[in-house]
Design a protein around this nucleic acid. Sequence first.
RNA 1: GGCGGGUUGGCGGAGAGGUUACGCAGCGGAUUGCAAAUCCGUGAAGACCGGUUCGAUUCCGGUACCCGCCUCCA
Length: 533
Amino acid sequence: MTTIRLTNSKTRRKEEFVPLDPANVRMYVCGPTVYDRAHLGNARPVVVFDTLYRLLRHVYGADHVTYVRNFTDVDDKINAEAQRRKALGRPETLEELIRERTEETIAWYHADMDALGALRPGHEPRATEFIGAMIAMIEGLIGRGHAYAVDGHVLFRVRSYKDYGALSGRSVDDMIAGARVEVAPYKEDPMDFVLWKPSDADLPGWDSPWGRGRPGWHIECSAMSYELLGDSFDIHGGGLDLQFPHHENEIAQSCCAHPQGQFARYWLHNEMLQVEGKKMSKSLGNFFTVRDLLNKGIPGEVIRFVLLSTHYRKPMDWRRGTVTAARKELRNWWFATEEVKLAAGADDTFVDALADDLNTSDAINRLRELYKAKEFSKLRASANLLGLLLPGTDPWFRPKVDDLVRGKVESVFALRQRVRAEKDYVTSDFLRAVLEVAGVTVADGKNPTWIASFAGQERGWKKLAELSEDESERFVNFDSLASIARSRHVWLSSEIDSNNNLTDGHVVIVDEVPETIDVDLLYELVRVAGYDV
RNA sequence: GGCGGGUUGGCGGAGAGGUUACGCAGCGGAUUGCAAAUCCGUGAAGACCGGUUCGAUUCCGGUACCCGCCUCCA
């Protein structure tokens, strides 16, 4: 059996992964707070842990892995949105409006993460559905002397847990010295954190032994992981920014409430995604959503590929050029493997790379070797394990050409074949340029054909008026033909930097239509394109 | 201030104490009426300063710069 090795944040070492029960490998990952569209930073752990999930299923069997990822639907930002809607005069109760908001956000989340090829976890618990479990857990903590109730609040007594800070390598005293902790009159100690807090009439609340209130942020993960996975389970994952305080507090709560258990045995943290060298975050305003990228025509599969091209424990900077390279490579793989029969299993070297602390970058490298070696069946079976080249993927790599446009292209194409037969290469080249501008690449050779062009636009050829920074979908557009005919010019535009790389900055080349091109031909083109002359 | 991560060729990005990483882009060639695609070939790196070593981009120490957490955040 494949040996999986994982870097455990708890021990700061790469360790062999040995599950408690190979027949039921259990993983919990901190999910989103469902108040808005997921940004790209949210997508990184989703894709990373989805890949781990796929690996675990591969090694232990699909029916032997339990994956839980929560939805946090108790949150001030959600409350604020519900209150905003209430203020607009909506008749529903606040609770109903909150439910409405979280329902729509969860639907977005599912749609966006599905687009990235992420499997749905086996359990997606919502905090609001586990309030009872949280209250029970809090009562247990009070009973054991690890928590105390004051004025409708319940606080966790941090000093009562001697290992507090072990995960993130901090000591309580150092943190007090840092003095960035909230001091509140009802706290015994500044480090103590909230398990339960009171809600006023404008806020959602549940009845509890301490009055109407709502849970603190950390308790939900402790309660839900206990209910669904037990007091000891294998893997707990999340973004590095959650290591402290969220995960530290989870450990304190869970270990104090269930001292007989080990809680999570392997802690995995993914490094942050950056944009322009800074962490993507709402407060910096440098975020964009997964949906934004999808709407720009970047396929989810390509986004996934980019996210997996960097090892999960390294910071990754989102850059445009990476998308272009990823798109091209994936497209090549698709063309090579689309018709191929699946191999019995994934490539061993590939699996070994993945099993070595989820080295997706190295695994992708192995895919490149398989591609080079024309081992297409193995390539596809292996890529599937990364959530790439999956059956049923929207064929983004094949430009869509509708029948009307197809007819127009065929007409011009036929026209060009005619003049080529007559060795009228001036006209032939002109028609090639015309088609290129329209987004069609003609391939001559033994069996002349055409494709709605990837190659053309990847070389930077575009219809001038349609240049836009992030436009990347390939399409056939015949609007340009009319203007060509009218002006007798072909516009070719490319993006070239000082090193002749095709990136940003626009250079416009204007080629005059050769004098020898017959005006009647131009008019015929216009008619073919469906315009009046 | 405390804790943690990063710095590799034009861009992205790995492993390994000594042999070409790889991909994208570039360049040269084959092929093509031209072009595309394809194939072949090719230049280009390891922030800085020391140390260990026969030999370090890879190990150790230090410096610089960047980033994250300590406050809701994946």
